[in-house]
């Protein structure tokens, strides 16, 4: 082989610029978890998790069922608070603020950390009201015109506006599964969060709806910190820039998605992603 320097193609250059901060460590982490343990009663569900999640990018959590990835995701907006037997120790900070601090307002936290679930769960209200719900209860808009604008821009960002702009008063539950999921994403981003948590957002969708949601995730990542739990290896490889592999309640390996899916360091990661787990 000749010793020539390879010129990066245009796409690679753009991608490199978009994700440079994810590898350079120039910006501090958006979410920082230090020695996080979660117990459900006596069960030690999550053991000593340490991870840094960068801003403006997609981090994927992968691992077999029951490995703790959803449990950890739910720690980030304190959804686990609603489970009586659940106890969380260790420290999780968002922008250096401890989210388990007693003085912290959990409702405000959940406005900053939006969540999208496996099954689309629109409110049994109109499409408009589904998106307007968050801004209304948080008092984010001063008048109807402003609210209209937030609803439109959120639906636009969720790539749903063109499909629903003529029927905003129709019920949200009347949309197709993929549209409902994008409506839920629009509802999550309407309150202008910093972080969007997605717990298997495409597992109930057909391939076309999945492709639309994935395209959306790819667009949203320039403005949000997105954390996605997925059982689809291909999806994790496609949408994320960093990937963390959980197994039996521990975070086994966290690295750039490229490394995890081409040459992971830990044998357990390799066995899992290639379908060799016994």
């Amino acid at each position: 082989m000749e010793n020539s320097t390879v010129d990066l193609s245009a796409i690679e250059r753009v991608e490199a610029a978009r994700t440079a901060h994810l590898t350079a460590g120039a910006k501090p982490a958006k979410v920082l978890a230090h020695d996080v343990n979660v117990y459900y009663g006596d069960k030690h569900a999550l053991q000593a998790v340490n991870v840094e999640i960068p801003d403006r990018g997609v981090m994927a959590f992968i691992g077999p069922s029951g490995c703790g990835k959803s449990t950890f995701l739910r720690c980030i907006n304190r959804m686990n608070d609603t489970i009586a037997s659940c106890r969380v120790t260790g420290k999780i900070t968002i922008d250096d603020q401890d989210i388990y601090d007693r003085s912290l307002d959990v409702v405000q936290l959940r406005a900053r950390v939006g969540m999208v679930f496996q099954k689309p769960n629109p409110f049994p209200k109109s499409i408009y009201d589904n998106v307007a719900y968050g801004p209304r209860i948080h008092g984010l808009t001063a008048n109807k015109a402003e609210l209209d604008e937030v609803v439109q821009s959120s639906l636009e960002k969720a790539a749903l506006w063109n499909e629903v702009k003529d029927r905003l008063q129709d019920s949200g539950t009347g949309l197709s599964g993929g549209q409902q999921q994008r409506l839920c994403i629009a509802r999550a981003i309407a309150v202008n969060p910093d972080i969007i948590l997605m717990d298997e957002p495409c597992s109930a969708l057909d391939p076309i709806a999945t492709a639309k949601v994935e395209t959306l995730i790819d667009e949203l990542r320039s403005n949000f910190c997105i954390i996605i739990v997925t059982h689809s290896m291909q999806q994790a490889a496609r949408v994320s820039q960093r990937t963390a592999f959980f197994h039996l309640g521990t975070l086994v390996e966290e690295d750039s998605t490229k490394t995890i899916f081409s040459n992971p360091k830990d044998q357990r990661t390799q066995d899992y992603i290639t379908g060799r787990f016994g």
């Binding site: 290896m233 081409s262 390799q270």
Partner: peptide, 9 residues
């Protein structure tokens, strides 16, 4: 199969 990691190599 959409092979990855060592299988893809």
């Amino acid at each position: 199969r959409q092979p990855i990691a060592n299988d893809l190599r």
